[in-house]
Nucleic acid binder design. Structure first.
Lengths: 187, 187
DNA sequence: CGCCGAGTTGAACTGAATCAAGAAACGTGG
DNA sequence: CCACGTTTCTTGATTCAGTTCAACTCGGCG
């Protein structure tokens, strides 16, 4: 739990009271490779903090699995759309490795947001960071060649290439697995 | 100002005190077509609410202007990355039509976030909505043909096609102006 | 009236997808 | 610890959607 809070306080420091309240909510989960956190059609009612391991979010398109995000150590993970709106998720969340997670329910989080201004702030700041991440990825994705996308990945998030099957990386970049394989062989 | 608050309270209702404080901060601005709200290299220190008109955000890539978002009536508008991080913006913000805007500075907003939990919540909820929007657009953009992108635009945001020059729409969709022109002629 | 920006149309080119087959790596049970 | 089947990755040949470059049309505005 130590680690969880040191990461959280990287975003925004918390009072003892707020930490205590959070402590009562977060539950530790350990799952093994290939297990699912969420299947499409379900409503995502949990927010997770990923302490150790790797996770992917993917959806099905014409019989293919399109991975649209990865989660690694110290990432917050959820099916954002479903978690916020309460709609059934269109995506699946699956473990790429055995993982150690901390879980909190939407209900619990909502209560904490009511009770603690500082937790509302924490969440606001986390959103800012994640919005910027998504924006950067979006701007990057458009108007870049497959080779440039690969180079960006190599520079910015090389751990993805090391820990994730090629097919998942390819769909994440928006290119075919064959193309990614060919590009990689040039390096 | 009436209108501004009715829109804001669509996201989250506010107490009289919070509204009063906001009222003191928001300043009305009227600008005409083609004027700039922000140029690349500047730090964006203002958040705008767009009451009337149309705006685009674009950046330069290989001598081309890539429009990556549009703002219309009732949108919040800023150079998000720059506003949050304080880094110089890579993008420009330009009016596509004459606009009526309400402006608040980052400094002012920061103070309000400290004073009012409910404003912190308002902002948090606005972020959620905008994050979901961006996510949807991102998922849409990847793996769709030019024709599908056009059809989506027609269905979901036809006002963009009606109020924006074709070249800007094309770069927004991530396709060339010529391709967009050809596709449009098929309908 | 003639210029200028915006949009259209045509022809050639190309990056990446697709289809197809084979090689390597992986892990599971005998 | 090896054999077999499955999944993952590579390589080749072909095809195609969309880009690029270039010329042309159209409508407004000084």
């Amino acid at each position: 739990m130590h680690h969880l809070f040191s990461q959280i306080e990287n975003y925004h420091p918390l009072s003892a009271a707020a930490k205590e309240a959070l402590q009562d909510c977060f539950k530790k989960i350990t799952l093994s490779k290939n297990e699912s956190l969420l299947n499409e059609g379900q409503v995502c009612k949990q927010l997770y903090f990923l302490e150790k391991g790797a996770i992917r979010g993917f959806y099905n398109l014409d019989g293919k699995e399109i991975t649209h995000w990865f989660g690694f150590e110290n990432d917050f993970v959820t099916s954002f759309h479903s978690f916020i709106t309460g709609d059934p998720a269109v995506e699946n969340i699956q473990l790429l490795e055995g993982c150690v997670l901390w879980s909190i329910s939407k209900e619990q989080l909502t209560q904490l947001l009511d009770q603690f201004h500082e937790i509302e702030r924490l969440v606001r700041i986390v959103y800012e960071k994640y919005y910027i991440r998504l924006e950067e990825r979006f701007v990057n994705a458009q108007f870049k060649t497959a080779k440039e996308l690969y180079e960006n990945l190599l520079e910015q998030t090389p751990h993805i290439l090391e820990r994730v099957p090629l097919g998942a990386v390819a769909s994440y970049l928006g290119i075919s697995q064959e193309t990614l394989s060919r590009i990689r062989s040039q390096f």
